Amino acid sequence: MSFLRGFLFNLYLLVLTLLMGVVAFPIRLLNRRDAALAYAKLWSRAVLWGLERLCSIRIVITGQENLPDGPALIASQHQSFFDGFVWMNLVPLPAYVIKKELTSIPLVGPMLVLSGMIPVNRAGGSKALRGMMETVAKAQTAGRQIIIFPQGTRTQPGQTAPLQNGVVALARQATAPIIPVVTNSGLFWPRSPWRKYPGTLKVIIGPPLSPTMAGRALIPAITDAWTHLSQEHNLPLSPVENSVDVKSSPS
């Protein structure tokens, strides 16, 4: 069943993206950034609607009261492609920090740039980091909520991975609250593109970290916050891999 769910969802996602990508051409030609972001939000809602309906996945968001009305630096765990969609409609002006390769995807890539996402060349060294910091600073001045994945890559649910130093650099210049976020999205949308598992997918938004925290203390503070939130909400604390079909999934 997990393979069938995955196949149906992938077909839905492909058709949806092709159709909406073609319809987006006028927005790109007119270079309408506000319209591009609204369109990206619509696309994300449609993707998550299909995930819920076709894959029997219930999405539960906890802690939205911890999100500020204005700019924020959201430090989220990253387990699944789901994480790249959910924030589009949880905050008013989302701006993901994304790897530059995503901007080369036909139809999707140009809209990512136009809607204000922040591409980073991960092989660009200190020059790329400085460019990212400047772009993030401008985005925060514009009131946007910056979504970063401090681990730098997808991990299995419960897996620990070192946080990248780039998050410290961003935090040092940030004037906005830093919000820790945990999820169990990898249990339901794993690395395998052909499998989806039913159950309750959780996104837990924690209280803001102290704005006066020193840079060196930030990485352990994020890690500790993730551990506390995972324990409090019964999320995996040791690696879990969904590589085979299961009769029942965690909820």
Rank of each mutant, 00 (worst) to 15 (best):
V120A: 02
R58F: 06
T62L: 13
M133F: 09
I98D: 11
G124I: 00
V120E: 02
L73M: 11
T103C: 07
I105L: 11
R58I: 12
A139Q: 14
L67D: 05
P94Q: 02
Q140F: 03
D69Q: 12
F82I: 02
V91A: 01
S76K: 05
D83H: 11
I118W: 05
N89K: 03
M111E: 05
E134G: 14
V113F: 03
P68N: 11
P94W: 00
L129F: 06
G124W: 04
W87I: 10
A142L: 12
Y96K: 00
R122D: 01
T141P: 09
K138R: 15
G131S: 13
W87N: 04
S115M: 07
F85P: 08
D69K: 15
R122M: 03
L107V: 02
D83Q: 09
Q64V: 14
L112R: 06
L107I: 04
S80V: 12
L114A: 07
M117D: 09
I105H: 03
I146C: 12
R58L: 06
H78C: 03
I147K: 04
G116I: 07
S76I: 06
A72T: 10
V91Y: 03
R130A: 13
L114V: 02
S115C: 13
S104D: 10
H78W: 03
D83I: 13
G143D: 06
K127P: 04
V108A: 12
L73C: 07
G63S: 14
A137T: 13
V97R: 01
L112N: 11
P71Q: 10
M88L: 14
V108P: 06
P94Y: 01
M88K: 05
I74K: 02
K138G: 12
N121E: 09
Y96P: 05
V113R: 14
Q79H: 09
Y96A: 06
P92A: 07
K127D: 09
K127F: 11
P71H: 12
K100S: 10
P110L: 03
M133D: 06
P106K: 08
I146E: 11
K99L: 08
I57H: 10
S104E: 11
M88A: 13
R144M: 15
I74E: 10
W87R: 04
I59P: 09
R130C: 01
F81I: 15
L102T: 00
A95V: 00
N121M: 00
E101T: 05
P119T: 02
L102R: 03
A72M: 09
G109S: 05
S126W: 11
G143Q: 10
L90I: 10
N121G: 04
P68G: 05
N121Q: 07
I105A: 07
A75G: 05
Q64F: 08
G125C: 06
S126L: 13
L93K: 12
S115R: 09
N89V: 01
